[in-house]
Amino acid sequence: MAIFDDEPVKKPKPHEIGQDLSLLSQDELAARIELLRAEITRLEAELHAKGATMSAAEALFRRG
């Protein structure tokens, strides 16, 4: 509990790379795997979008 009401409450991170996994249950491990898979999908989508933007920019500047 925070001493003052205006202090930010620290939320635990859902997953931290390299953290000790030995105390997690199978359900907790499965949940983290799903969380990380969703994050990988999100990162790949952003990477694809940035690649498409870069390709469009390169095509625009090659015309002239």
Rank of each mutant, 00 (worst) to 15 (best):
F4A: 12
D5V: 02
A52Y: 06
G64H: 14
L43M: 04
P14N: 00
Q19S: 12
G18Y: 02
D27E: 13
I40G: 03
G51H: 02
K10T: 00
L35R: 14
A2P: 06
L36M: 09
A57S: 15
E39S: 11
I3Q: 03
G18S: 02
E7T: 05
I33K: 07
E44R: 12
R62C: 14
E58N: 15
T53G: 03
D27K: 12
V9Y: 11
R63F: 08
D20F: 08
A38I: 05
A31D: 01
E58A: 09
G64W: 11
E34A: 04
E58H: 15
L23G: 03
E34T: 13
E46L: 01
L35Y: 12
A52R: 04
E58K: 13
L47H: 08
V9E: 13
L36G: 11
H48N: 08
R42F: 12
L36A: 06
L24K: 05
M1W: 08
H15F: 13
R63W: 05
S22M: 05
S22G: 11
I40Y: 07
R37W: 08
D5M: 10
I17L: 14
E46F: 05
A52T: 09
L35H: 13
A31N: 01
E58M: 13
L36R: 04
M54N: 10
K13H: 10
L23R: 02
E39T: 14
T41G: 10
A56K: 14
I33V: 15
A31Q: 02
E44T: 08
E44C: 02
E16G: 05
D27Q: 10
P12S: 01
A2N: 12
L24F: 14
D5L: 04
T41V: 05
P12G: 04
I33L: 15
K13N: 09
E28F: 09
H15C: 09
L21Y: 04
S55W: 09
E34W: 06
I3S: 08
Q26L: 00
G51Q: 06
F61T: 11
G51C: 02
E39A: 11
A57F: 11
A56E: 15
K50M: 09
K50G: 08
M54T: 03
R32A: 06
P12V: 04
A59E: 14
L60E: 11
L43N: 08
K11H: 12
Q19P: 05
D5P: 09
A49R: 11
L29W: 02
M1Y: 05
G18I: 15
L60A: 15
D6V: 09
L60R: 15
